[in-house]
Structure formats: structure tokens, C-alpha cells
């Protein structure tokens, strides 16, 4: 019985890890959803009034996003958009933009 439970647990674990097998380009794909306003790869069009995100530190980006999400940072729209992403997704997005030169 114990053995069976162990096998079942191992199977569950395998299934769970398959279900969560993330695409290696997940960060890139998520960050691309921001590019409509913030520019391809976070490089906003100069002078158009949108923040460039490329090359900003991951910590700074994450703090900003967390403040938008919590409502601490006033915004016209980002408080609504940031709530649509999980904290894990926001971390991937911040990491991707931080790595852009």
C-alpha cells in the first residue's frame, strides 16, 4: 500500500512538472505584451511620453509594478493592467526588460 502511494505520488509529481513546463521564451513573450505602449523590447519611441523599460534594474521595475498592483503608486491605467499578471509573470517581465541593452 505504501509503495503504491509512493508510485502515485511520483506520477502526480511528474504530471505536475509536465503541466508547469514553461516555454523557455515565456519572459520574452510576456514582455512583448507591454511593447504596444512601451516599445519593442521596452525601447519606447523617444518624445512620445511613454516610459522606456529596457535596461532598467529588475528590482526597480518590480517595485514599480508591485506599487501599481497594490495601488500605492497612482496611475491612469497601470494599476489596472498590472493586476492582470501574476507576481511570477511580473518577475519574468522585469528580468527580460532589465536584460535589454
Amino acid at each position: 500500500m505504501k509503495k503504491l502511494t509512493q508510485v502515485a505520488a511520483a506520477c502526480l509529481l511528474a504530471a505536475a512538472s509536465t503541466a508547469h513546463a514553461a516555454d523557455p521564451n515565456l519572459g520574452r513573450n510576456l514582455a512583448a505584451t507591454c511593447a504596444n505602449c512601451h516599445g519593442t523590447n521596452g525601447k519606447a519611441v523617444p518624445g512620445a511620453g511613454m516610459d522606456s523599460l529596457a535596461g532598467e534594474s529588475k528590482a526597480k521595475l518590480l517595485q514599480k509594478l508591485a506599487d501599481f498592483k497594490s495601488g500605492d503608486k497612482p496611475a491612469s491605467i497601470m494599476h489596472q493592467i498590472s493586476k492582470g499578471y501574476s507576481d511570477e509573470q511580473l518577475a519574468l517581465i522585469a528580468e527580460y526588460f532589465a536584460a535589454q541593452k
Binding site: A35, N36, G39, M50, S82
Partner: peptide
């Protein structure tokens, strides 16, 4: 659920954001 939404009220700041959006998405 709980994400997204609309403006609190019409405003000129978002008038500028709308043109910023256009320039950035056309470039994207």
C-alpha cells in the same frame, strides 16, 4: 477578474497617452 477597467473620468493626460500609444504601437 479584478484586472483592467476604465478611466476614472475623461482627462487631457490620457489625450497625450493616446498619441503616445499610437506612436509606440506603430513603431512596434
Amino acid at each position: 477578474k479584478g484586472a483592467g477597467g476604465i478611466s476614472a473620468a475623461r482627462n487631457e493626460l490620457e489625450g497625450k497617452a493616446a498619441m503616445g500609444w499610437a506612436k509606440n504601437i506603430w513603431a512596434d
